[in-house]
């Protein structure tokens, strides 16, 4: 793999790019760079997909009912258990 000096320079900015929080100027530079650099394009795409997969598969924030009951009892909130 050919190593571009530029790739190294952009590496630190990739998460900001994926989050859409990179400055407009750097964003344009990176877009231009990726048009010529297939490797960086792949790293960005797979980085984006990695974050996406964790978002998509995150469990709903819920707790098993027995865990909830034990929590309320431990906190002496038995009176508030019924939903």
């Amino acid at each position: 793999m050919e190593h571009h000096q530029n790739c190294r320079r952009f590496l630190d900015s990739l998460s900001d790019y994926v989050d859409g929080s990179l400055s407009a100027e750097l964003c344009r530079e990176l877009d231009r760079h990726m048009a010529d650099c297939a490797n960086c394009k792949i790293v960005v795409d797979t980085l984006k997909k990695t974050v996406y997969l964790y978002h998509e598969t995150a469990a709903q924030p819920s707790i098993p009912s027995d865990v909830r009951v034990r929590l309320f009892r431990r906190l002496k909130l038995d009176d508030y258990l019924e939903k």
Binding site: A59, P61, S62, V67, L75, K76, L77, Y80
Partner: peptide, 26 residues
């Protein structure tokens, strides 16, 4: 207690999920 119970109801799911992801054990 009633107000605290509301907080527990609202956020226990999130805190449990955090614990599961960090510790990987129910």
């Amino acid at each position: 207690q009633a107000e605290f119970a509301r907080v527990v109801e609202a956020y226990s799911g999130y805190i449990y999920r955090l614990g599961m992801k960090m510790l990987q054990n129910p």
